[in-house]
């Protein structure tokens, strides 16, 4: 029985990984040229920003919160970077550092509002979303192109891997972020407290965990992730524009959920989220290879996937509860 339970615990993650390979295999069979290392790496190159953003979202969801400001913060990061680089001619590395600082501050304020004033995370980050999107437009309504040499260099730099295939610097950043996040989640008190809060906040308080500090910290982490994601996105787009990252918060949440994170908190992992992002990326590539479908079909496929995953999660939860009550009943009948 122990084995069974173990597999049900990881089933969601296993299904996600399986689905990714299934989709990739499907594309490989159907389209020539789909099955190549570069095409696989392109998933990372094209979605590095989403991986980073979804890491932050995963943490926030695990702690039982939600952050819908991340897309707008990404947009603000791109715009502000472009403005500071092009209009103020600041050092590009200083700009990046400033952006990360801004993300931390943004998260700090949102987290503090949520914790100290017991406000709904949805409402607070909704306000944050409007604020960031509004500030983006205040800086400039028109697109600002980034012509900075350093940004251009980073954007175009190819790190060769096996047999002529390559990755970008963004991918390296995303992978490092992923590893750090996984470490935080599993080997630090901060990470474990986040899981405890998501499992049962009341209990976490009674167990003497520093709930307030952790909650605020989680939103700061989310803020840093979205600005880092914004920096990576500005390498990718090399511009600031008010409509950058529109609706990206939802893609980010979708990635986490497909990757096995529960919206109710307490359960999830960043590796699951990575596969959540990759699945979305694969669907996008499939639609692209198909050629005739509109790119919006990606959304429809993701919608169907989301429904399937949420149904699967609730079935799994129901099964566990049922199994538990059976155990209870058999216990009683023994006595």
């Amino acid at each position: 029985m122990n084995k069974l339970q173990l597999s049900s615990k990881y089933l969601s993650l296993i299904v996600t990984i399986f689905l990714f390979f299934l989709l990739f295999a499907l594309g490989s069979l159907k389209f020539t040229g789909f099955f190549s290392l570069q095409n696989f790496l392109n998933l990372f190159i094209d979605n590095a920003y989403l991986i980073i953003m979804a890491i932050g979202t995963t943490f926030i969801l695990i702690a039982g919160g939600i952050d819908i400001s991340v897309g707008a913060v990404l947009s603000l990061t791109c715009m502000l970077s472009a403005y500071l680089l092009e209009m103020k001619h600041l050092n590009p590395f200083l700009v990046m550092a400033l952006m990360l600082l801004m993300g931390a501050a943004f998260g700090l304020i949102q987290g503090a509002l949520i914790h100290f004033f017991k406000m709904q995370p949805f409402i607070v980050t909704l306000a944050g979303m409007f604020f960031a999107r509004g500030m983006t437009a205040v800086i400039s309504i028109d697109t600002i192109d980034i012509t900075d040499k350093t940004y251009e260099l980073i954007a175009n730099y190819r790190i060769p891997v096996f047999g002529g295939a390559f990755i970008s610097i963004s991918v390296v950043i995303a992978v490092i972020a992923l590893l750090i996040a996984a470490y935080i989640a599993h080997f630090t008190k901060f990470g474990r407290t986040a899981y405890a809060i998501g499992g049962n906040e009341q209990s976490a308080v009674l167990m003497g965990l520093s709930v307030g500090r952790t909650k605020i910290g989680i939103y700061m982490l989310g803020g840093i992730c979205s600005t880092l994601s914004g920096i990576v996105f500005s390498f990718y787009m090399r511009s600031g524009f008010t409509l950058h990252g529109l609706g990206m918060e939802m893609e980010s949440i979708a990635s986490a959920v497909i990757g096995g994170t529960l919206l109710t908190g307490g359960v999830g992992s960043v590796f699951g989220t990575l596969f959540g992002v990759l699945i979305q990326g694969t669907i996008q590539t499939l639609v692209m290879f198909q050629g005739t479908l509109s790119s919006w079909w990606t959304k429809i496929a993701v919608a169907i996937l989301l429904c399937l995953f949420i149904v699967m999660q609730s079935l799994l939860t129901a099964r566990r509860i049922r199994k538990k009550s059976q155990v209870l009943k058999s216990d009683i009948s023994h006595t």
Partner: peptide, 18 residues
């Protein structure tokens, strides 16, 4: 029971004092 059902038994005993 004021514990976190999503964490392991061991972690529930030691969380906060790991």
């Amino acid at each position: 029971v004021n514990l976190c059902a999503n964490l392991t038994v061991a972690e529930n005993i030691f969380i906060g004092r790991e």
